[in-house]
């Protein structure tokens, strides 16, 4: 499955992130994961949210420069060596990771590793063949309540 990551072009100055978060808060959009990579005076904010299309509309209406991009969100075991299992498979198959970040779904149970790759379809095939589960935005949204219930 493919998840849609939302990317925002933002100048590296105070107030830009707050503009993003306030727009999303007003639309009651939940942020699953967020990472920021920056060059000297500009950067890109990458996010997984529960409703990417709604988030895109809200941010664009707020004047921001936004792009939706397919990424692969892979479920991996949350234990030592968990990420290594996945990376070994991808590297054996010659998949290059352009950008990646991860977050825990259930402590000591499941984590999600989000990867941006050029060959999305091929990556999905490889993952399926190797019994890795991938998530889309809806799936991510659906899982999380259980995560809260545990505590």
């Amino acid at each position: 499955m493919i998840a849609n990551q939302i990317s925002i072009f933002a100048e590296n100055k105070p107030g830009r992130l707050s503009k993003v978060t306030s727009l999303l808060a007003a639309e009651k959009i939940n942020i699953r994961a967020i990472t920021i990579s920056s060059s000297d005076e500009f950067g890109v904010i990458n996010m997984l949210v529960d409703d990417p299309e709604k988030a895109r509309r809200a941010l664009a209406a707020g004047g921001l420069t936004v792009n939706l991009k397919p990424v692969v969100a892979v479920v991996i075991p949350d234990r030592p060596g968990g990420l290594d299992l996945l990376i070994r498979v991808l590297s054996d198959q010659g998949i290059n990771i352009e950008n990646a970040y991860g977050f825990v779904l259930e402590s000591w149970e499941k984590a999600v590793f989000v990867v941006e790759v050029e060959q999305v379809e091929k990556t999905l095939e490889i993952l399926e063949k190797n019994k890795f589960k991938t998530l889309d935005a809806e799936a991510l949204a659906a899982i999380e309540p259980f995560h809260y219930m545990k505590y």
Binding site: Q5, I6, S37, V44, V66, N67, L68, K69
Partner: peptide, 18 residues
């Protein structure tokens, strides 16, 4: 100013543009 449509979410692409 970067063209809105040009932005693909990729930092490398922006650095290349610069």
């Amino acid at each position: 100013e970067v063209l809105r449509e040009f932005f693909s979410g990729n930092l490398k692409q922006l650095e290349q543009l610069r």
